[in-house]
Design a protein around this nucleic acid. Structure first.
Lengths: 249, 249
DNA sequence: CGTGGTCTTGACACGATTCAAGCCCCGTGG
DNA sequence: CCACGGGGCTTGAATCGTGTCAAGACCACG
């Protein structure tokens, strides 16, 4: 529950693990030092809520370590995840004073936050920040559109295969997990329920489809969370996408 | 089939119907005149394809009049609409040389196009364009996330009600259609099939749900395409969203 | 050793899809 | 002027996939 300051507080941006991908990636040293004046770190434990939809929001920020989700909930409790935030992803919208979605830490989480008003002012004077944010937002929009195809047109089995594929691709690009030719091993950062919320399924269906993929040898589980994909192509075939990945280049 | 130049070709931006909402909305006169040098108009007939996914794309642009869609198609033909483009909406991504989605004119369509390379250069020097594009992209991302909730968690009936609600809201904001207290009348710009592609349904299900809403008096049809909503609140209740609209403020 | 959270599995129900037939409206050509 | 044809739409009946409800397994932790 408590929001704990961690060792990052003392860090300068030079040692930041996401400095090449975050919203500040294009900033020069001068710009970084302006950002440093308005930044602070916050950390959250797995399961904590970072923000509720509608909460006043006086900061924006980046995920430094860990995984968070954005989700929407209907009155009757149905929920849909609408964003999966990994290290370097940005939270908040300049100009918006309240949270539009629930933000939840699904693993232990560290965020680099900027006070919103000063950040907005800085953005007006610093095209590098706005340029980078535009690029990141366009990437997110592409990801959202890929996600829409998954939600609207894929079967439960294809949804699960797509999720595993996406998580594996992402871990590979971050250099996590193990990747050898055509194979990979990594941890699912999400519970079955979170996967269900991501994919517009129930947790029972998620569980069944994972079991089915396992039984057929498409994937292979070490414990509930660690996944080994023996044949990348085989998994891709199960996603329903075409051979080049079916996604934006 | 033929791409026809229309009377807009001669227009300067002063008479442009979307000048207050498009990507150029914040530009001053000097900036506009730079844009005018690289712009040209294109028009398309209803049903025409503007671009196929993967096509080389040497322009970006704005919808001036009419409605277009962005969609993705899987190998086996399943298709999902991922964007609905109305007047002032932007097409293309600076820095991307090929189309990521199929773009289709669903009504007769006029677009204001900018040659991509010069536009990108101009954008670097013109923060007003980048700022506006960022704002529009953030809006699209919010819309995409609202759409994800619809795709992932709503019933067929709620999906149809949501679509009608969204289309009505938009027509109202553009000052089209008729709006009196709690009522509205407007045309559906989409065929049943396009609605199905939007909502992740089959066209039969769309048809059945529209018939059901009509029979119960939630909506009322004049012909196949013209919709009258006698009670806005009643329709909203059918969307499953909560009373404030359930969407981003 | 018991408790709670996470996950799996089964049986059944239900909503959406599939397949099929036919209607409505409009434009075309005999 | 009317027959014809096609696109868009509606409706019905049967099927199938996913959700719902329920029971129990697994595992970490106190």
């Amino acid at each position: 529950m408590a929001v704990v300051d961690i060792q990052f507080t003392a860090h300068d941006c030079g040692g930041c693990p996401i400095k090449h991908r975050a919203v500040c990636a294009r900033c020069d040293d001068d710009e970084l030092s302006l950002l440093e004046e308005i930044k602070y770190y916050r950390s959250f434990e797995a399961g904590q809520t970072v923000l509720w939809s509608g909460d006043p929001m006086d900061f924006v920020g980046s995920v430094v370590t860990g995984v968070a989700t954005l989700s929407q909930t209907m009155e009757d409790g149905r929920t849909q995840m609408v964003g999966l935030l990994l290290p370097s992803d940005f939270v908040g919208r300049p100009g918006r004073g309240e949270a539009a979605y629930d933000v939840t830490a699904v693993t232990d989480l560290t965020m680099c936050c900027f006070r919103r008003k000063p950040f907005e002012k800085l953005m007006e004077r610093t095209p590098h920040i706005a340029q980078r944010l535009l690029q990141m937002t366009l990437d997110e929009l592409d990801a959202a559109r890929e996600w829409m195809l998954i939600l609207g047109r894929k079967t439960a089995r294809e949804k699960i295969a797509s999720l595993i594929f996406i998580l594996g691709r992402r871990d590979a690009s971050l250099g996590l997990g193990t990747t050898t030719v055509g194979q990979m091993t990594f941890d699912l950062p999400l519970t079955r329920e979170a996967m269900a919320d991501y994919l517009g399924l129930t947790l029972e269906t998620v569980s069944r489809q994972i079991s089915a993929l396992k039984k057929e040898g498409v994937i292979d589980l070490q414990g509930k969370r660690r996944v080994h994909v023996p044949d990348h192509e085989r998994l891709l075939a199960e996603t329903g996408d075409d051979a080049d990945g079916g996604m934006v280049a």
